[in-house]
Amino acid sequence: MYDFELVKPASLQEAIEAMQAEDAQALGGGQTLLPTMKARLAMADTLVALSAIEEIKGICTDDDGRLCIGGGTTHAMVQRDCAESFPALASLAGRIGDPAVRNRGTIGGSLANNDPSACYPAAALACNATIVTQNREIAADDYFLGMFTTALEEREIVTEVRFPVPEAAHYEKFIQPASRFPLVAVFVAKYSDAVRVAVTGASSDGVFRWNEAEAALSGNFSEDAVKGLSAPDADGMISDLHGDGAYRAHLVKVMCARAVKACA
């Protein structure tokens, strides 16, 4: 790692101020950022650790019934505390990395990084969650702008994520056996007025909504509705040593069908 100054604000306000420093970078759980910095693929003059800020940790339900998860909430806390309120999300959180990683990694860190193979972006997009920062609220539909790219501006910190809890939902994940990130994973969320399907791991543009599946499922929420579809276009899918684009496109369909089946 290149050296940096570490600051540990105890409040959001202190963090916002600390982020004003030149070349400052927020540090969530560090489970992706620190390995990246160890490889010297990222650097910062000031690293602002968010882990001591209690006000951005925790889970509650707001007046609209939305599940509100603080940006500094670890995967382990979501796994444990959302098991009844939003089981599909708890299940997703419980399958990120491994137990030790889940004790550090945070939902805010995951969404800010927007790795094209991360798990949380699929849930956020499938639920059209609201990503809250110190400055504003961003709908997930407007938030994910491509691989490692989001609508976040410099110095903006994810303080909370608000999920409208679906009537039924499931996250189906097919892992890449080395990194244990999804090779392809699909989050299906069924609401009274719509079905949303978000796919991660597959596209080189990052998480995306599979519109054809959403349309088919809105009329007929069944595994068969997915099976009747063609797999999404393999062009633009990630192709690497674990699977080419055609395989990933095929997996999108398989994972989607399985997610729908599991919702039933």
């Binding site: 040593l241 395989y247 095929h250």
Partner: peptide, 19 residues
């Protein structure tokens, strides 16, 4: 015998040679 290779083999295709 990665899933991708097995699946491609089942469908007579050529799996990603980069593997």
């Amino acid at each position: 015998l990665t899933p991708a290779r097995v699946w491609h083999a089942m469908h007579g295709g050529t799996p990603n040679q980069r593997a």
